[in-house]
Structures are given as C-alpha cells and as structure tokens.
Design a protein around this nucleic acid. Sequence first.
DNA 1: AGAATAACCTTACTGTGTAAAGGTGGTGGC
DNA 2: GCCACCACCTTTACACAGTAAGGTTATTCT
Lengths: 209, 209
Amino acid sequence: MSRNNAGLSHARIVEDALRIVNGQGLRRLTMRRLGDALQVEAMAIYHHFPRGKEQLLDALVHHVMDVPAAADPAAPPDTRLRHWAAGYRDRLLEHSGVLPLLINRGYENPAVLDALYAALTELGLRGAAVVDAARTLDAYVLGAVVNEVRDTASRPEPDAAGEQAPAPPVDPRRHPHLAALAAHRRTRDAADRFAVGLELVLAGVQQPG
Amino acid sequence: MSRNNAGLSHARIVEDALRIVNGQGLRRLTMRRLGDALQVEAMAIYHHFPRGKEQLLDALVHHVMDVPAAADPAAPPDTRLRHWAAGYRDRLLEHSGVLPLLINRGYENPAVLDALYAALTELGLRGAAVVDAARTLDAYVLGAVVNEVRDTASRPEPDAAGEQAPAPPVDPRRHPHLAALAAHRRTRDAADRFAVGLELVLAGVQQPG
DNA sequence: AGAATAACCTTACTGTGTAAAGGTGGTGGC
DNA sequence: GCCACCACCTTTACACAGTAAGGTTATTCT
C-alpha cells in the first residue's frame, strides 16, 4: 500500500475506464481522469499499458466483446439465435460509449462465432450459406444498435412538463409516404423494433427451407 | 483578397475537412491543420462555425448524408432498393472516416427515406411493415459497412510478395464449426458479401408475399 | 548485505480546442 | 467626403490532452 504499490491491475484499470466511458462518455476518458479514479497518477497506467491510450482502448473493446458463448445447447437453434442477438445487443447497449471504437478495432470472439455457426447449421444451412447468414445477422444487430443509440441520444429529455416530441414537420407534397407513415414511426419501443427486424432477417436467412 | 478576406466559406471548409478526414483519418482533423489546408489561421473557422469543432463535425455528417434520392422512378421497386443500398454503402465507404460520427449525430434525409418507403410500398408492404422493413434494411447496410471497414482496416497490406493471410489458428476441438467453415470465410470479396447479405434481408422483408 | 526489479511519481514538452480581443478593409448613411 | 459599422480574419493566451524521460521506493533475488 505504500508508494510503489497502489494495487493497480489490468482488470481494475479496464473496469474503471469502462465506468468512466459509460458514465461520462468516451470523450471524457482521459489518462489523468482515469488516474484520479484509480487514485494514482496518470503515468502509472503506462506501466500496465505500455502502448498507452491506444492499448487501453483496445482492451476496452476486448473486454466488451470477450464474453463466453451463452450455452443453452438444449434449446432449439432459432431460440439460440434470438438469445445470441439479444445478448449481443444488450452488451453493446450497456457499453454504448465504446461503439465508435468497434469501427476500427478488430475483435472476433471464436467461441461466440462458433456457436453462431452451430445454430445456423442446425437450422439446415450448409457451407457458404452459414457464413453468409452469420455475417448478415451480425451486420443487422450492429447496425440496429447503432441506430438505436443515435436515436436515444438525439431524442431529447422529457425535461419540462409536457414537452416531449417536437414532431418534425414533414411536407406531404414532397414526401407523401413519409407523411402517411409518420404515425407508424413512433409506435414500438426500441426493444420491439429490434425484435421485429431480427425476425425479418431470420426469415430471410432461412429462405429456401 | 486582403487580410480580411481569404475566401473562406462553409462549403470550402467542409470540403477540405472531408479531404483531411478521408486522407489522414478523423484523428488528424484538427482546427490548425484544417486552417493550414485553407491557408488561414485556425480561429478563422470559428467565424463560419461559431460552435466550433462540434458544429464542423455535424456539418461533415450532414454533407455525407445529404444527397438527393437517386431517382429512377421507372425501375421496379426491388431494383430501386438494391440501388439505394449500393449507393448508401458507396457513400459510407467513400467517407468511412466519418463513420464514428454517425453513432452520436443524427442526420435523417427525408427525400431518401420517402423513396425507400415508396419502393417498399410498391413491393406490397403496408403500414407498420413498411417502417419495419426500412429500419431493418437501414440497419443491415450500416452494420455491413461498419464490419467491412473494420475488416479492411485490420486486414494488413499485400505489401511484400506472397505474404497475405496470416491464417489465424483455430482449434478444431473447441470450435469445430469455425474450423470446418474457415475456407468459406475467405471466398467472396467485400462487394459480394454485401450483395449476398442484402439479398437475404430483402427476402426476409417480403416474407409473406 | 547488496543489487536488481517492479510499481509508481515528477517533470516537461508538444499539440489541441477555443475564449478574448485586436486589426482591416469595404459599405452604407448623412 | 467622411465616419460609423460590420464582416472577416489574426493574435494572444489558457486549460487540458497524451506521453517521453528519468527519479523514487519497496520487494525480491542472490
């Protein structure tokens, strides 16, 4: 506990960094701020992450992505796919602050990917069709979460009383379909939207069967 | 042309900023660097973007997203959807540097969205199904592009002769499906992968008809 | 014991966004 | 003609970012 042993560790650093990110945003994740949270000087972090902030951000991505494949091998394959998607979405939403990092930093979780392939194979897909389906599902989930995060971020707060939806004006001359369907755009909540879209993708992925 | 008129303009600033971003990356887009590119001091930009860099980044997103809806009203609706998807992907890939900004900054292009609704309606969808399908397609395209960008970024260069795929080792005991399908994971190029996935989503979106 | 080392601290430098205030030329009112 | 004003750009300055270099300890090894 003395001067040269503050109990710092890879895990503790990542943990506190993640707390900062999803409490104050990625922008405010700073070496000095992280040091403060860890009761340590900023430069102490460099002993555990010699490549500095870049390496720290890599570790954040890795930590978010490195989960064991949810194992319910008895469940039917389509149920497992839905669980996979829901779990994936939950994890991304819980750490939505690191989403920008996922664009440039690779992850790839073999266990999860293998389980995904397994479920799709059990559904009757073979060979390239499995890989294509997996990629498509992955893309859908990621894109859906990104859109969801953007929506909830730009959707303002129910701050004052009554003030909620500014209802953006849409010109029915220029955009008739948009105007006609405007009501349908506000119905479901985020979770329902995700589930509905997932069903569509799942249906497409098993089209021949 | 004197000292108080360097010919700066909203459009020119956005243009040069975008050039920097997709030539050197978002990280290197800096007020001073942008000033240099525009032959101007950094603070000059604040006269056209009073809210500073935040507003500049908003403008970048807006510029990337604000394109007229590709109008080929004679084409069949499914063709129009494919064109929309291809155009969307191209635009995102061309400015892949701004992708991280799309997560937190809203855009929404009414013209494009209306055209999308129109095509889906022509396909036979009605009401909420149109909105759901549009959201699903949007999510797929965005997610697919994000994955594609990550792949091409982490995929190293065919720099020296012959050296290309390090072929990550996969344990066939732990991940049998991954091992069995490894060959299928490297077949198609990025454009094909996108097209194949899009077909799956399109199929799912029109499932009842 | 003495030396090596792991874990942290101090200092210092470059680069970043931007507030504040200063010029400078052109434009309109009188 | 002249002067006030304003749009446009520059200067200066500050707080905060990441991190290289080197210093300080306590533990551990010989």
